[in-house]
Design a protein around this nucleic acid. Sequence first.
DNA 1: AAAAAATTGTTTGTATACAAAGGATTTAAA
DNA 2: TTTAAATCCTTTGTATACAAACAATTTTTT
Lengths: 140, 140
Amino acid sequence: MSNLPEDLPECMVFLLGKAYQKAHGDFNKRLRPYGLTNMQHLVLEGLWYQPGMTATELSKLLILDKATLSGVLDRMTETGWIVKRPDPEDRRIQRIYPSEQANHLKPELISERQESNREILEHFSAEERILFKRLLRDMI
Amino acid sequence: MSNLPEDLPECMVFLLGKAYQKAHGDFNKRLRPYGLTNMQHLVLEGLWYQPGMTATELSKLLILDKATLSGVLDRMTETGWIVKRPDPEDRRIQRIYPSEQANHLKPELISERQESNREILEHFSAEERILFKRLLRDMI
DNA sequence: AAAAAATTGTTTGTATACAAAGGATTTAAA
DNA sequence: TTTAAATCCTTTGTATACAAACAATTTTTT
């Protein structure tokens, strides 16, 4: 750490990228036993928040490109984490739900994310944590 | 902004991901006229810092997987941004240099990054900027 | 020096990311 | 109402990301 040459540690794109890389990588490792990825976990959280969302709604909620989401949903359907059901009123739409298996693991999976968050923030004080989140939110 | 459901704005993995996504996307748009990506720009900055680095050295400097870097360097060689030369002492190694064309654009490209950084930070106070960078650095 | 270990870089396979274009369907306009 | 516009989602193409396995080449051990 902190052995980077002069300028890199001043570059926000670099710093944000590497901070994300670390958080993302740690969370992915934690999720590996479940056969889930960070992004797939995020989709489940979205669907637990509001089951039956369409891909477009999910895409907006998660601030994720629809083309990317399309692939993620495909894989999650194949691996049985979600279920797609056609909307009776609009044939363009498919409504998406967490599977039984996903709901069964919900408490466990949510606590994994909380644990991951705790790990990321454990080196910071209470004030720093609040400030850090605010700074990030203000960027989005 | 700030219309996300309850929990997402508390999740550091999510916040870091979206903050990075934004910074990364903005910088990529700015680089598009040059035919460069964020990552390729980063490689050039590394090589300007120390020309002749090996892929392994670059990989450590940029905290980037060697397999990923391999592909990036391939594309940059094809598009003429970098040049690879064999090391006379160790036939496993290739030393990497910025091309003439890259050096020619160096001042311009560096100021693009600076401008991008300015944009990212423009909504924050001087203290917030320093703190933000420190928090990110402490995470890496 | 011959065998074992380490290093360098590539390749393969899977999973994001996003731009751009396209097919199917619904809604709005003329 | 039938043409145009908008919406939903997928597909294609390019570029990261990273794990795992690999070939070529040193370096270390024995």
